[in-house]
Simulated assay, not measured.
Amino acid sequence: MSLSTDQPQPGLKSCGFNDCLDILRELPILSGVPLDVVKVLAYLSGRESFDAGEALCEQGEALDRCFYVLSGEVEMARQVDACAVGLPRRGKGYFFGGLGLLAPAKALFAVRAVTDTECLVLTKEKFQKTAERFPDIWPKILGNVVGHVFRWEEAFLAAHAEECATTGEMGLSLF
Score class of each variant (00 low, 15 high):
Ala82Gly: 09
Phe95Tyr: 09
Val38Arg: 00
Phe127Arg: 05
Gly91Asp: 02
Val69Pro: 00
Ala62Ser: 10
Ala42Trp: 01
Tyr94Cys: 03
Cys83Pro: 00
Cys119Leu: 07
Asp64Trp: 05
Asp116Gln: 13
Gly93Pro: 01
Ala105Gly: 11
Lys129Ile: 08
Glu61Cys: 10
Leu56Cys: 04
Ala131Cys: 14
Lys124Gln: 12
Gly32Glu: 12
Asp81Thr: 12
Thr117Lys: 02
Leu87Val: 05
Pro88Lys: 14
Pro34Thr: 01
Tyr43Trp: 11
Pro104Gln: 13
Val114Cys: 12
Lys106Gln: 12
Glu73Pro: 02
Lys39Val: 06
Cys66Arg: 01
Ala105Leu: 15
Gln79Phe: 03
Arg47Ala: 11
Ala113Asp: 06
Gly60Ser: 07
Ala103His: 13
Ala82Val: 14
Ala62Pro: 03
Gly93Ser: 01
Gln59Tyr: 08
Arg47Ile: 12
Gly93Leu: 00
Thr117His: 03
Val40Pro: 06
Thr130Val: 12
Leu70Ile: 12
Val38Tyr: 04
Phe109Val: 12
Ser49Leu: 08
Val33Cys: 10
Ala55Met: 09
Gly93Asn: 02
Ala62Leu: 04
Gly86Met: 13
Glu118Lys: 11
Phe109Ser: 03
Leu108Phe: 11
Ala52Cys: 10
Gly60Tyr: 10
Leu35His: 15
Val114Phe: 02
Thr117Phe: 01
Glu61Lys: 10
Phe127Thr: 07
Leu56Pro: 02
Arg89Asn: 14
Lys106Met: 07
Gln128Thr: 08
Lys92Asp: 04
Thr130Phe: 11
Ala55Gln: 10
Val121Thr: 08
